[in-house]
Nucleic acid binder design. Structure first.
Length: 424
RNA sequence: GCGGUUGUGGCGAAGUGGUUAACGCAUCGGAUUGUGAUUCCGACACUCGGGGGUUCAAUUCCCCUCAUCCGCCCCA
């Protein structure tokens, strides 16, 4: 084999695309109910957009971007996430001027991150995400979280855990960061090399480190919760009470830190608690990003959103043994015998299809027995048999596969008869 | 980026330094005339991820490479 899919990418074959279509259907239904409208942005953007919005110190920008230079010598990047492009579009198209605020948007599409492939992690993966931009009402935080959970609920997932935290605003984050640095700095030599670099860049991440999770200094570290100013703390309390009003269970994890710089106030993750799910359990991540629009020259437009991976959603469904209803089967399989029946059969095929009947026929020049076998394998409800006799008589044999009954039907009555059998 | 794992026909899976690379499933053909199951018979890998090397000889040994899976990092 000479060519294979690039590392970290996959072909989604017909046996799988059926599932994807069902998930996409669920997403459309849920977004419709919540009144989120679809937005489609380009698959690549100027590199600087992600550098500015996602943040220079993040793993995404530092080592995971698919960046290339185009023929006009511009640096472009395949989008690693969906929020930055949506915010760019929001500002570019002056959606802040729309009469209905906040602007509620959703998207579904491929994202790209240069990472080593693993179960549930790909270099090209599909995210469904939603963004509500323009409102700083804590109730909309709860709405956005509710939408994400609703999608999972609609596909039948139950083994889920919602974890939330407040990252506070700029002011409290700065104060907390300072406290963290002075807490860890004297003993930083007992931490892993990654954490030693984190001390400078983003000490909050030390709390999240798996290598050093047992270190008592982590447990005794100053908690962000203690540094939340009054405004941030009361915002967080409101979000929690709205979640309660929505009947949503949550767990507060003071160490929850998201990997993107733009988050503030509400941060959340939805994880699978299903057994044997592998190392990666995060299905969905999101949070509030007040001030993001200003970063690229827009007006003040506080926003909140989330993104979930469709691949992981399907993995979670697999883990919980949730499956979609069967794909639609074939209504009619047309079997022709001999050259004289070929054209009448093909003509009939087109007539049935024009009537909206799922119809197919054999293009492999097989014998009757083999064609019957194909019909059986394709789970055709009915088989229409056309041989020389039928052609001269202007009739066909119509067989109901389930009970094996068969009758001769004049061509003129066939469509009606088939429709009757299809819809019963 | 790091560590480990695996890579044989459409799928699953044996195997050995040397004449014809098991087997199962699937597929196709047949078991007398135009009918789906089962059964029976038959067909189906000039080749063992790719490249190079060692050898009289390699799918089996060595090196490189590509890919896979698992874990780390991090995330969706």
């Amino acid at each position: 084999m000479i060519f294979k899919v690039p590392r970290g990418t996959q072909d989604i074959l017909p046996s799988e695309t059926w599932k994807w279509q069902q998930v996409e259907k669920v997403i459309l239904e849920a977004c419709d109910v919540y009144r989120y409208k679809e937005i489609r942005t380009p698959i690549f953007e100027q590199t600087e957009l992600f550098q500015r919005l996602v943040g220079d110190t993040t793993d995404i920008v530092q080592k995971e971007m698919y960046t290339f230079t185009d023929k006009g010598d511009r640096s472009m990047t395949l989008r690693p996430e969906g929020t930055a492009p949506v915010v760019r579009s929001f500002v570019e198209h002056k959606m802040f001027g729309y009469p209905d605020q906040p602007v509620k948007l959703f998207y579904t599409g491929p994202m790209f991150r240069y990472e080593r492939q693993q179960a549930g992690r790909y270099r090209q993966f599909v995210q469904f995400g939603a963004e509500a931009i323009g409102s700083a009402d804590p109730a909309i935080d709860a709405e956005v979280i509710s939408l994400a959970l609703d999608v999972y609920k609609r596909v039948g997932l139950t083994k889920l855990k919602l974890v939330i935290n407040s990252l506070g605003d700029k002011e409290c984050r700065a104060a907390h960061k300072e406290a963290l640095v002075s807490h860890f700095n004297p003993h930083i030599d007992q931490f892993c090399p990654d954490c030693q670099t984190r001390l400078e860049k983003n000490p909050l991440r030390i709390l999240d480190c798996k290598v050093d999770s047992g270190n008592p200094l982590i447990a005794s570290a100053p908690s962000l919760a203690d540094y939340l100013n009054e405004e941030s703390a009361s915002y967080f309390e409101s979000v929690k009470s709205f979640l309660e009003d929505a009947g949503i269970d949550y767990e507060v994890d003071p160490n929850l830190v998201r990997g993107l710089d733009y988050y503030n106030h509400t941060a959340f993750e939805i994880m699978s608690t299903s057994e044997g799910f592998g190392a990666i359990t995060t299905l969905c991540g999101g949070g509030r990003y007040n001030g993001l629009a200003e970063e690229i020259g827009g007006p003040s437009a506080p926003g909140i959103g989330f993104a979930m991976s469709i691949e992981r959603l399907l993995l979670a469904m697999e883990a919980e043994s949730k499956i979609f209803a069967d794909e639609p089967t074939l209504d009619v399989y047309i079997i022709t015998l001999g050259e004289t029946a070929r054209r009448p059969g093909f003509k009939l095929l087109n007539e049935l299809r024009a009537a909206g009947i799922r119809t197919d026929l054999d293009y492999m020049d097989r014998k009757l027995k083999a064609q019957m076998k194909s019909a059986d394998r394709l789970q055709a409800r009915m088989v229409v048999i056309i041989g020389e006799d039928e052609v001269t008589e202007g009739a066909v044999q119509l067989k109901i596969m389930a009970d094996g009954t068969q009758e001769k039907v004049p061509v003129g009555e066939l469509v009606e008869k088939i429709i009757k059998n299809t819809t019963r």
